[in-house]
Simulated assay, not measured.
Amino acid sequence: MYRERAAVGIPAAVRWVSVSSVAGPVRVLPDGCLDLLWSSRAGLLVAGPDRVAQVSWSAPGERWIGLRLPPGVGPAVFGVPAEEVRDRRVPLADLWGRAAVEPAERIRAAIDPGGARCAADWSDAGATILEEVARARLRAGGGPDPLGAHVAARLAAGATVAATAAEVGLGARALHRRSRALFGYGPKTLARILRMRRALELARRGVPLAEVAARSGYADQAHLTRDVRELTGVPPTRLLTSPPD
């Protein structure tokens, strides 16, 4: 089971819940985001921005609640540059110390480990707590750096890195430095990941792959296939037979 919906009070953030019905691999595609997670097995975690797909093993009945923060927002919530958690899954306590204890206890109480709550109740309660924690951190820190949302939006729309740098008034080196702190990697890597996400979204709507490649800025379908395989470990045809991550 997997479902998601828009978060409250954090623009472009998504709250999601997942329950594993069987044991098996789970492939999480890179998206430029950082996630605040709760796992019934591991507790509160921070999922850093990935450069390539991460494959983990789910256990039957394992429950996950997540808050996916859009590119550039995570550092303001977690208090560290995104590159410090790149390609990592880090216990929240490693970043916040004792400040992570209170939200962990609230979630443990809200999910009702005794099983009295129905699935919708425990997941909604847990996701609401994650949202509240993230909103409080954003208020305390003065909000996310607006550069992050602007750069990510321009790159997601297909703008070149050079054009984006000129638009925000930064040189190439300065934009790369700011991008590593905001997204975990440079703007070229973020642009590549966002282009792949855009292409897969079109393909899932039924657009033929050759047309997807042309509309997404790839040289041809072979370029699209090669890029998707390098970022995810499998070709796009394989991804299209599975539900989106």
Rank of each mutant, 00 (worst) to 15 (best):
A93C: 03
S216W: 01
L240T: 11
A172M: 07
I10T: 00
I193M: 05
R238G: 05
S216G: 03
P75W: 13
A210E: 15
R88F: 07
V46C: 02
R41Q: 09
L182C: 12
G158E: 03
A104Y: 01
P81K: 12
A152P: 03
L231F: 07
K188A: 14
V151D: 02
A47L: 14
V52D: 08
D31Q: 04
G24S: 05
R117V: 09
R137V: 10
L36C: 05
L37R: 06
T164R: 01
P243Y: 12
T189G: 13
P146C: 13
P60V: 07
A134T: 01
A162E: 15
G79K: 03
A53T: 07
V14P: 00
A116T: 14
A6S: 15
T241Y: 04
E131Q: 00
C33K: 02
A210H: 04
V55A: 09
A181P: 07
A100T: 04
L231M: 06
V14N: 00
A119D: 09
L209Q: 02
H176Y: 12
P70V: 12
S58C: 06
L240S: 11
I193L: 11
I129D: 02
V8F: 05
V228M: 05
P70H: 08
S18P: 00
G171E: 05
A162L: 10
L45G: 05
G233H: 07
D35C: 12
E105G: 08
L182Q: 10
G143N: 01
H223L: 06
L34W: 04
L67S: 05
T160N: 03
R41V: 15
R238F: 12
L29Y: 05
L44D: 02
P25C: 12
R15S: 14
G32S: 11
W16V: 07
P187F: 11
M196L: 06
L175N: 09
P25G: 13
D227V: 15
E167N: 06
E4C: 09
P71L: 10
L155N: 02
P25A: 13
P49V: 12
V212R: 02
G143E: 01
V26I: 14
P235W: 07
A125S: 08
